[in-house]
Design a protein around this nucleic acid. Sequence first.
DNA 1: ATCTCGGTATGGTCTGACCATATTTGGTAC
DNA 2: GTACCAAATATGGTCAGACCATACCGAGAT
Lengths: 233, 233
Amino acid sequence: MADAGSGRAGRVRAFEGVLARIEERIAADGLTVGDRLPGERQLAEQLQVSRSSVREAIRVLESLGVVSSQVGRGPDAGAVLTSRPADALGGLLRLHLGIATLSMREVVDARLMIEQWSAQRAARSGMALDTMERALAAMDTAAGPEEFVEHDVVFHSAIVEASGNRLTSAFTQALRDAVRHFAVAAVARAGDTGDLQADHRRIHRAIADGDADAAVAAIAVHLARAYPPGTES
Amino acid sequence: MADAGSGRAGRVRAFEGVLARIEERIAADGLTVGDRLPGERQLAEQLQVSRSSVREAIRVLESLGVVSSQVGRGPDAGAVLTSRPADALGGLLRLHLGIATLSMREVVDARLMIEQWSAQRAARSGMALDTMERALAAMDTAAGPEEFVEHDVVFHSAIVEASGNRLTSAFTQALRDAVRHFAVAAVARAGDTGDLQADHRRIHRAIADGDADAAVAAIAVHLARAYPPGTES
DNA sequence: ATCTCGGTATGGTCTGACCATATTTGGTAC
DNA sequence: GTACCAAATATGGTCAGACCATACCGAGAT
């Protein structure tokens, strides 16, 4: 894509041309979520490439979370523009963790950055408090590590979503997806979730009080406890 | 991918199965950057699917920045594991900006978060100062907006890279890619880059002095100037 | 030792076929 | 007229097989 218009020597593969054309069309026609792309056969004819190349391009768009394919017939069938950046980010992070180009520490560090930033804002806006309270109660009565972590994600996500920034929200969700396995294992290993819940209540209290500094500090303590240094693969 | 192992009713497409198997193999064999995947024909036979399905899976991996395909023959040919998260993130952000599910403000906000975070750390470590100085000098003598922005990216990237977190670095690079067009346009419109350079020097001074608070404030001022509210599409 | 040229493995592309799914359409029974 | 059921159809999903361009590999000639 970045090569499409530049003067690089590299030959542009057919599916890359298709990608560029689709992106152009999205911009030119102002397509947005819910709009449909032409069918694969039709696109192939329009762009003078094979259906295979069109399919590869659509597969890329799907993997980046901007298109969703539906089989069958009717208004909802075909390639529809969607917006699932978190799914795409999640897969991306998971794969890069898998080939060891990203370390656990970097991922947790990024989480710390986003959550502290969001908590500062949440402390000023006072939003998300009731969602946090519900998640706290649900964690108290959670049956096992999986269920605990599920509500834990809701708790932390609420803080980030209060900032109203879909990019950081998506990023957080992706980070949580990528480390969900470790989180469940850590909770199961610890057995007692009392410390974690105490952290959560401290965070909630700080945001409710509008004390941004205390919220930042509480989150640092919490993440250090949940992912102690040395927590790897 | 997320559906691969769950009990969802949705049928798993062939290429999704291929993706899952490749991911398993990466984890099981501990494959990392530089290692090669089997050829498309060989993979197709091993996994009992058509070559088209294998190709779609590899296309996805390529779009997520974990694989790079080389034609020809020899040790470097075929699908090689790589690590280009920034490229993948860049395309992802650009597309989502295109379909209007992310706003300019959210992107700039995220940049502000990362750069402030990084600057705090840089102020403590004192790294990246010489790279920043070289970029400052290069911006002074830049011929046009494009060249100015090029060195501007180097300047800001140096701050983030000083944190040593490849995830935030990749994210920053992706954000810069996504907004490069706007940045060039803004510089061209302003004409005079004196204010921007003054901001840059304030940021550099604060980091050199180890004054984290001043660095955070200087970055806030700079980004507010470079992307004033109302800067949209 | 070096050069040359054919062999070969690789990804890239195309064609054409068939399948599965889901809607649309039209006919039929009531 | 209404309700229901079956055929037509448009869509993505998959496959098989072919051919091309590329780039290394290696045998032979010099």
